[in-house]
Design a protein around this nucleic acid. Structure first.
Lengths: 115, 115
DNA sequence: TTAATATATGAACATATATTCATTTGAATG
DNA sequence: CATTCAAATGAATATATGTTCATATATTAA
């Protein structure tokens, strides 16, 4: 007799789904786990910016910025808007902002940075 | 005449502090950016577990678990308690739990997993 | 003390990832 | 159309990271 928790084949299926899910969660956090991307995201907290602006502001090559923006795009952390030749990026939703700010608050408290 | 925002040397000092801070934030998120560590953390949501338990439960070698627990320890995501030869690990504080759950909720919604 | 068990650690290896450099695409303008 | 400017992309390289394997440490039991 089987129930929804002890049948081994069924549990394996569930485990696989769970593992896929956790893999995605890890991938999601991984995107926040890079200084360049964090700096980009933090810059976008104050509003949309184009690629050149970001490169100048952060003193990082246009190429590096562009590569990282692609990662951010692919993971839906930013959205963009084209206007002529320039592309303006901004944070995708408040979820992103919330998580970013949570992390910043955590480190600020932990390391005792001035508020 | 200088003020607290335009003096270039002073700004550089501020930038350095800010960059150090953002580096730490990225490091912090990086810890969440690995499936094994996420699986460990998720397992600890239901309470403390020892190393062997985790290795069995997650079907990951004792060594791999131990290496990752070290990373989690060094970043204050978990704390531990020794009892004889066994070491019990648990989540450090609710901050960790909050961020983990935020990420899981985000992915669940984004990917449309069943609640 | 010897054996057994739980955990930690170091070295080696394979893979992933970020940056640079060169080039390309695409849009506006002369 | 040729040029210029903004952004994207591909290849190459250097570095970081996770796992395995072998071994060490530490605690308990025989």
């Amino acid at each position: 007799m089987k129930n929804c928790h002890t049948d081994s084949a069924e549990v394996n299926v569930i485990d696989e789904l769970e593992n896929d899910f956790l893999r995605d969660v890890a991938e999601f956090f991984k995107v926040f786990g890079d200084v360049t991307r964090i700096r980009i995201l933090q810059s976008l907290l104050t509003g949309e910016k184009n690629v050149t602006e970001l490169a100048d502001l952060l003193d990082i090559s246009q190429s590096a910025i562009s590569h990282q923006l692609r990662v951010l795009r692919q993971n839906n952390l930013v959205k963009y808007r084209k206007e002529g030749k320039t592309v303006f990026y901004s944070l995708d939703d408040e979820h992103v902002q919330t998580i970013l700010e949570q992390g910043m608050v955590h480190i600020r408290h932990k390391r005792g940075y001035a508020e």
